[in-house]
Design a binder for these strands. Sequence first.
DNA 1: CGCATTTTGAGAGCACTGCTCTTGACGTGT
DNA 2: ACACGTCAAGAGCAGTGCTCTCAAAATGCG
Lengths: 230, 230
Amino acid sequence: MTAASIRARVRAEMTEGIKAAARRQLAADGADLSLRAIARELGMVSSAIYRYFASRDELLTALIVDAYNALGTAAERAEAEVARDDLLGRWLATCHAVRDWALANPHEYALIYGSPVPGYRAPEDTIPPASRVPVLISGILRDGYAAGRLPAESGEPLPESLRPELTTVAEQIGAEVPPALMARGMTAWLQLFGAVSFELFGQLNNVIEDRAAFFAYQMRAVARVVGLPD
Amino acid sequence: MTAASIRARVRAEMTEGIKAAARRQLAADGADLSLRAIARELGMVSSAIYRYFASRDELLTALIVDAYNALGTAAERAEAEVARDDLLGRWLATCHAVRDWALANPHEYALIYGSPVPGYRAPEDTIPPASRVPVLISGILRDGYAAGRLPAESGEPLPESLRPELTTVAEQIGAEVPPALMARGMTAWLQLFGAVSFELFGQLNNVIEDRAAFFAYQMRAVARVVGLPD
DNA sequence: CGCATTTTGAGAGCACTGCTCTTGACGTGT
DNA sequence: ACACGTCAAGAGCAGTGCTCTCAAAATGCG
């Protein structure tokens, strides 16, 4: 019993050590992490890593899941600190938490929101961690709608063809949000990650210098589109 | 004279051939293009490529510039076909041209709007090609504002601190657009590329199936925020 | 305890990569 | 006719992901 659990614990620690080294190398050198370099840093031989991860892709998947979870945790923490009835505050807290985490961990952000790595295909188990931020946003919408402070329909009318689909999305995410409101929520979602990605991937270079102010403005603007009350 | 120009022409053709092979391989296999594979496809040896491109990065830069230009051309063509006073039509034509080009050339799109490649740093000469779509959007705003059909201020008020910066952006791009309108134009710009990137990078998998309808809705919605008249 | 089984790390090796350098051939200008 | 500049080829270096084999260590069981 103890013996088995000891071995299991050592194995878990080793796995975590490999991921930590990979993250370090990711933060330092950039995106294309090398198994051999990780092994070197850990003082072992490259083939030994294959005892813990079947392939480079599997390591990458583990890092991706971790990154989604780290981002999700950061966002949830920040959002939870705001008074429940301050809908705009909850949205802005989420936005800034996402941006702050992305700026602090640019390469991990690129891993999850950048272009997919060549041969790589995301497995199913990345879906729940990936949907933590969307779930958070949906929660704000749900609370606002339940309190009668967010209109179901507003702005651009949602085409009929999209209604069933967005109803399904709301159901999957477990939030009772009408489809047209859900669609505006996705507008906000796109705007949030579009803004962060553009800033991080250099598209704002030589264009906008005061990124923080620009980001805050954009997130307030989209909050207005969603209908979040001040 | 003729001799020199002949040699120059042959050289230009060879350069173009290498880029074409690189694009082919990019479209087929994915992002991490290999110089040796390109050379193999062209029936030459890898070292010969270095007569035309000093490094892999230089080839990459050439491909990036080409991609920006191809996207810019596609967008400009589509936008030019719409009547000048149909501002919404011009915006939507631009959006759909960008999306269509991205869907037809996903790997080239990833090259320019995805996460930047590890060691790579974009040189100055990518800036003009990269700003062709923004220039196009600004042109729509300029025409609308000049005709009195687009309000300078609308929606979320632009903070004073951002005004000088956005005035500079409008100046650089050579379009007489007031800063607050320019800021809304950037909202649209973010939304456009955010939507295309999310679709292409798989963030909409298992979420939205009717991507075309969703995209059209989002672009109409942001057009409303900008203030484009129907 | 002692033996069998499983787990682990090391090392060699394969096919591949970007890149450099040297060598030899070819076309051109004086 | 000779010299020069351009070009492609080949060998080679250091690096990569990954597979395989082998020995050592840790573990489970009678």
